[in-house]
Write a protein that binds this DNA or RNA. Structure first.
Lengths: 197, 197
DNA sequence: ACAAATAAGTGAATATCATTTACCATGGAA
DNA sequence: TTCCATGGTAAATGATATTCACTTATTTGT
């Protein structure tokens, strides 16, 4: 054993990269294992050396994306003070991610939800992790008095997450453009102050 | 021609009913055409007389559910005055639907999103219709001054829809219980007045 | 009432893929 | 050198969605 951290073999990375590239043009369902193997320059058999099945490759593509996302989020939050300011930033960063990484958006909003395995995958574990970050900020805001304390934090998180995802859905499905700055400003304003006049 | 309205042949209904029943216990993906045919008491070939493919059956199950839902929503809104009161009611009705009709919730939140065809199906047309109803209420509220006019109606709709769906997602995935009344009260309060203290 | 046409229904054949399996090559480690 | 782990191959298998040629029932026009 050379290092304690497992380093991915080149074949595995080629497969993940190939799928990510293919997903820019085509839907996951429409792709065959053979398509992915050809694009990766490997044989179909090798795929099953590294992945449990077709779905598993997709989960790894998502995991890679989400890894980058979490690193970025972490960085984005550095130096920001106050729960509300952090929420503003996190809303902006999330929308930016969905708007500028269409493959990521399509995978997480459309392609993975229909399989049980996803909810037990490493990728979904990262989603939970993000959820926890969001939840902690909300709790911090309640503790500091910035956020009202008569709404359960989980509901606030669901509202933020749900609003963002739903707002980016049409973009993912029909490729309708989204202006990150506009969307972030509007959604933040809406969630912080409500819709009542 | 007896009537101007096409009446579904019994075979077709049996197939839709069979799938709906099967979905109470199993996930769509895990079901084969043969499973559905056996449960419906028809042969596999017949299914392709009535449906374009496996997916198409699912879309018809959803369409049936959504038809009922829209009728119910229409009834629920009768006699209610004021955009905010209507929104309150529509939020409650939606949550009630997701909470008490688990098959419906699973289909719409998890099972259909991953196919292009869905977004061109009759079922999705009904979703659009519901969207329009919601949008009209929001516009009515803006016109009457009940709802603030500095947020585009589509964002308000996305927030309502997204928050509800996300709040019901864990229920659909992990079968976690949801109290309709509590959820409706909290979500309404949150969306109307925002999360800022 | 009766032929013609249309719809409902059958079940075996087909085709598409995801997945498995048996096998080859190579490069350390003992 | 031998052994074994790892990366890789290619053909076989198996599951299953879909098609097709066919039969049976049901309307419909005359």
């Amino acid at each position: 054993m050379q290092t304690s951290v497992a380093i991915s073999p080149p074949g595995k990375l080629k497969i993940i990269d190939a799928l990510r590239t293919l997903l820019e043009e085509r839907t996951f369902e429409s792709l065959t294992i053979s398509d992915i193997a050809v694009a990766a320059g490997v044989t179909e058999g090798l795929i099953y050396k590294y992945f449990k099945g077709k779905r598993d490759i997709l989960h790894h593509v998502l995991k890679e994306h989400y890894d980058h996302f979490l690193v970025q989020i972490d960085r984005d939050l550095q130096g920001i003070d106050g729960a509300l300011n952090k929420l503003r930033k996190i809303i902006w960063s999330s929308i930016e991610r969905y708007a500028n990484h269409r493959v990521f958006a399509r995978i997480i909003l459309l392609e993975v939800r229909n399989s049980e395995e996803y909810f037990h995958s490493e990728a979904y574990e990262l989603v939970r992790q993000f959820n926890r970050i969001l939840l902690d900020i909300i709790k911090e805001g309640i503790a500091s008095g910035e956020i009202r304390d008569n709404i359960p934090p989980a509901y606030i998180r669901n509202a933020i997450f749900g609003t963002i995802e739903h707002s980016c859905l049409n973009r993912a499905i029909f490729n309708e453009p989204v202006s990150t700055n506009d969307a972030a400003r509007i959604i933040t304003e809406l969630l912080l102050n409500g819709i009542k006049r």
